[in-house]
């Protein structure tokens, strides 16, 4: 299933389709997360997000020539709270 926004333990990743021009720089970097359909980028399942290093998420955001990708890292959970974070689906 392809989406415009996914969130997981490491944060929230989204693609703005009013800006995306389908150039595919994101697919070149992270083919496991991005696909191109009908000239726009789409995101894979949220589960895939946790397989990707946050460093690479920052790079894919900076590497989009149309500034269409936003990656918002999740703030680190306070140390006392030990509830396991569940990968959310949107």
């Amino acid at each position: 299933m392809s989406k415009r926004q996914i969130s997981g333990e490491s944060g929230v990743l989204s693609v703005d389709h009013t800006l995306c021009s389908g150039t595919g720089h994101c697919v070149d970097r992270l083919p496991q997360l991005f696909t191109i359909e009908h000239g726009r980028a789409w995101l894979a399942d949220a589960a895939a997000l946790s397989t990707v290093d946050t460093q690479h998420l920052h790079e894919v955001e900076a590497g989009c020539p149309w500034f269409a990708i936003t990656y918002q890292p999740r703030p680190p959970a306070p140390a006392e709270e030990s509830s396991p974070a569940t990968p959310g689906l949107e």
Binding site: H17, T18, L19, S21, G39, W66, F67
Partner: peptide, 9 residues
């Protein structure tokens, strides 16, 4: 320039 030059616009 990004908005003005985007595919949608």
């Amino acid at each position: 320039f990004i908005k003005a030059m985007s595919a949608s616009r």
